[in-house]
Design a protein around this nucleic acid. Structure first.
Lengths: 207, 207
DNA sequence: CCGAAAGCGATACGATCGTATTGGAATAAG
DNA sequence: CTTATTCCAATACGATCGTATCGCTTTCGG
């Protein structure tokens, strides 16, 4: 058998280039040639990795989705001993992508979301990522309920419901920061205030 | 003086065409030629109305922004006698663009937002629209506080803070519905639950 | 050592893009 | 009616896009 290369690593490299370009010039502003140049490979090499541009974008969106969810998971694993409340806070922070160093990732995400709203094949992987994040948040809420108060007067919050709210709020805040409608500090303040409210609702008997 | 046409109405017609195409093929998927065909005018006529494509898109985004905020304002004017609480609910409903008949408008909005995240000239009008909506919501919250309880124990919520939260939540929910991650019913349920929580926070002494 | 096979860089191709140009139709003032 | 001016449809143009094709190089089984 003749020459063979590590396609997996090359695909990842190309996906990185797609992200860089999508961050700079928006979605649809990435061309195969620019991608090839950014990834420091020839156009032909890109074409060998992906049958078409659509296939390349699909891989890139899955790549980004995996990276975000993995980062959230890692953040949780890094601080396992703390309370469910702070864990929720950290998770929400990571999802909201508010920090300056993740601004690019947020722009890429938004670019793909907008594209996916009119392109069904792209929407699939994004839904998968969102479902993963929502389930992760819901699990944290469940833990918070369990370790929290045993108060029986108030209606117990639905973890999936709270996770949906949190995810949508984080997403909206990220968008508003990207647009410059909110500063990162304002968004963080809103997010933390919501978390504080949620925590209070979970059960006031908390120290 | 020779022939003269109503440029204002033609510009609006072209903006409508831009919206229709942005809804179908996403942002950047709208070409001058397609726009001209949709608006039933020639390419030359479009070029006379707008010096460049960017100028056309800029006009279109302002047009959409005005239409959304105007619709929210109209909805409020149509039900002036009701309580501040229901007014807030209606406003949030309109902003979230969850109903099927506004799905297209939501897609267009998302398309422009994504584009604006990497194109500063487009971001300006969007920020203006968001600021208008946030102020409108904040005003409603203020009214709700005024007409609500006079309880002094709890800390009074900051109207601007609550407006920011509401706006971001509505935006995030709209996006998730467009992607198919949430159904319109789920999103509406989340939004109403948040409003209920807010209302409760404003003061429990309410009938 | 050697040919078969796979990879890759270069190039070609057709389509489509935004924009510029141009020649003639339409219109209102004199 | 004449004429100057505005408008517009058609067309041209150069750039860039995604994709297809084609030799040359590289590599490994035999």
């Amino acid at each position: 058998m003749p020459k063979q290369v590590d396609y997996e690593s090359r695909r990842r490299r190309i996906a990185e280039a797609v992200c860089l370009l999508a961050d700079e010039h928006g979605p649809e502003g990435v061309s195969m040639r620019d991608v090839a140049a950014r990834a420091q490979v020839s156009l032909g090499a890109v074409q060998r990795c992906f049958r078409s541009k659509g296939e390349m974008l699909l891989f890139a969106v899955e790549y980004v989705g995996d990276r975000v969810t993995e980062r959230v998971r890692a953040r949780l694993a890094a601080s396992p001993a703390q309370s469910a409340a702070t864990a929720l806070g950290h998770a929400a922070d990571e999802i909201a992508l508010l920090r300056e160093e993740h601004r690019a990732e947020a722009r890429i995400w938004l670019a793909f979301v907008a594209q996916a709203a009119v392109s069904e094949p792209l929407a699939g992987p994004l839904r998968t990522s969102y479902a993963a994040l929502q389930n992760l948040l819901a699990r944290l809420v469940t833990e918070a309920i369990g370790s929290g108060s045993a108060d029986e007067g108030a209606t117990p919050p639905d973890p999936q419901h709270e996770a949906r709210t949190l995810l949508a709020l984080a997403d909206g805040l990220t968008t508003h920061v990207l647009l410059g409608h909110l500063t990162a500090e304002e968004a963080e303040e809103v997010l933390h205030a919501h978390l504080a409210g949620l925590w209070e609702r979970l059960g006031a008997a908390r120290r």
